[in-house]
Design a protein around this nucleic acid. Structure first.
Lengths: 224, 224, 224, 224
DNA sequence: CATGAATGAGAATTCATTCAT
DNA sequence: TATGAATGAATTCTCATTCAT
């Protein structure tokens, strides 16, 4: 407090922090939380081990920050979609697709973020992250309910179900594909299938629900 | 090493193995994977540290075996339900309730089993466990599809969605409740809500689906 | 480097040095030697970490200087008393009281100065400090001896004994009181007791030492 | 608890603990507390670093134990003397001589024990150690007081004064001699001088205390 | 077979000191 | 001169695994 920080210095500090967070995420994407060791992060960020502690008081804090940064970016995308004015069904479909596709584009990272915790503090972040995601889905569902689009006993539970359905549906194939040495399989059919499940549930054939929401991107044919 | 093992010795061996697996699970249930240390397992099983290695070549192998044992028990319950001859909707509801209630009765363990992995090898088991579960749900859905009960684009995906919906819906509240210091909240309403979502999806009010399966507990009528 | 230093610059330098020394002492008084870290000293002095090294070649040098500064101040008080012309017994009592009371008024610092060393180099200073103190006591005793007031085998040893008696007597209660959460206990009775011991030693009741110096505070009468 | 420990194993454990404590004291005697590093202790004890933690939960605990062990040995000597039935003056003289000579025979260690603390927990031990020592001196003085040998305002303070007088008188010359490269100077005259001070205080020549206790070694007459 | 003390390769964290700017 | 980010060696503690008894 005795020194003024020039904007230049500020930006250098901020940039180092940023580099450290990116390095941590990069290592996380490569080998999961176990792979994120302070010395490795420092090296990946082009710093010495000790320097990490100039920016984060502990490993836990760094990891939490990395988690927040990544989760925040994902969340922003979904939140923006939830904020739009389109019909709830369309927004939901768009949100699911966005979330799923982003997850598929960096599978290892998504996996670590969604399923693989390490410490209590990170677990805290994970829980928070899930809840915020579910909250966005809930907002969509609620507005759909209010607009008469949906009829749901509990939008909160439905939102959690949707989130769980996405992650579980994607993560299994994801890991298997990654293990297979894997060229990127096309996740889109999978995503559409998940959406179909979410919209229709376990539809019985006799049900004459004449108009299912148009959830597929682009010109979509209707189920006859 | 050329000696034959007498059945007595065999059974002693088998019993020690069993004790070690139970000890590992007990520690897992108490404090998560981090809590499962070889010396602690040995002590809990009434063996010396070194003796563990007479039964398992490594910690990883022991953990994998423990995971398999626990997952197998859970799986058996669900598989038995799937094997019954009742209508698919009823079997599905019963399977979901059984899985969910068992998970709720030992939250810490369920959490560790479903979400909290440690090493790549255990992760393998976790994946396998999920897939086997999903497979049982798929079998139910498939038989329902074959019997004309359901109309599903992809029973595999639907099964994964159901599994994900359950775990995500339960685990969040589970952890929060545990943190709150937690008297056991009643999970049943939650489970029924999840079932409702799975059966109806995002039902639109105008849909004239005349008879959805009654999924609530109590006397259940059959679809006519 | 061949430039002459202007007086102005000199004084700025001197002032910065002074501020650093005071900062070090302040931290020492707050948390002992462990608390005195270079970055903390720099911040407390309103300088950058690097700047400290423009004034002191190493931490050790800074600490030594800080020690000297503080010890010097204490020493000056005692020396002035020793220089007076009053009878030795009175001067001794006054010196002991002054030293003890100053120590009690800043216990943490006194403790660090008297008992809690860190490195060999500081230890050097501590030793020197003790010796200088003892030297002042010795001077008093010697003059008393010369004036026929005392009869001592070795004034040097007696001076060391007095110094040791004071510090040991005060430091124990001091620490205990500090730990108790401590309102300032009145140290004066303790000091007077120490003085009594120093003057009388282990007095045997039968000894007909007619006039011991009146060492208690309040109006003091002359030695006859 | 699942295993019986055979006496043999017990003694091995105990022996390793003992070796570690001795190693710590040895390092302490060589270079002070700073010199006592876990890896160095382990090596000196012929163990690996990790093994230390089989016997002591932390460095602090090991150091505390080492302190207690050494202090206890010293204390025992003094306590035994205090327990005897000789006149108090003789016991006091004997206790002072014993304590001082033992300290002189291992100066570096004595110094570390008496003056050089490191952590709060060790400081605790040091304080306790001093107090126990002072307590023994106090017991002697009290019994002397009760027997009419001494007349003291506060035996507790006098005991602390004696302890302080010894340590301060010895430690200074001790360190200086050690620094000088140090052949062992004869500490006995110093000790006798300290004793003289303790017994006579700042004796005034006119005092006709006809019989001071003969504190010098050699044939000692009893007080009549 | 059983024991449990011992191993030793890490991992996180600290802080005096340096040096590019 | 002054800055403060960066260095990196040092130190404590962990725990799966081994091996002499």
């Amino acid at each position: 407090m005795a020194y003024q920080r020039t904007p230049y210095v500020e930006s250098k500090r901020a940039e180092a922090r940023e580099r450290l967070v990116m390095a941590a995420l990069s290592l996380l994407a490569q080998g999961g939380w176990r792979h994120v060791q302070m010395s490795a992060v420092a090296e990946a960020a082009g710093l010495s081990t000790g320097a990490v502690y100039l920016h984060f008081p502990s490993k836990t804090q760094l990891l939490a920050q990395a988690y927040r940064a990544q989760a925040g970016a994902e969340l922003r995308v979904v939140t923006e979609i939830a904020d739009q004015t389109a019909p709830a069904a369309e927004r939901l479909a768009a949100a699911v697709r966005a979330f799923a596709q982003r997850a598929m584009s960096n599978r290892r990272l998504a996996y670590a973020m969604v399923l693989e915790p390490t410490e209590a503090e990170i677990e805290e972040e994970r829980l928070h992250f899930h809840q915020q995601f579910i909250e966005q889905f809930r907002r969509i569902l609620q507005s759909g309910q209010d607009a008469g689009e949906f009829e749901l006993a509990d939008p909160q539970v439905a939102a959690a179900c949707i989130f769980g359905a996405i992650t579980e549906s994607l993560m299994g194939p994801l890991v298997l594909a990654a293990r297979a040495g894997g060229s990127d399989p096309d996740a889109r059919p999978l995503i559409e299938n998940v959406l179909a499940f979410c919209f229709h549930g376990l539809r019985s054939p006799g049900a004459t629900r004449d108009e299912a929401p148009r959830v597929a991107p682009g010109p979509r044919r209707r189920r006859k």
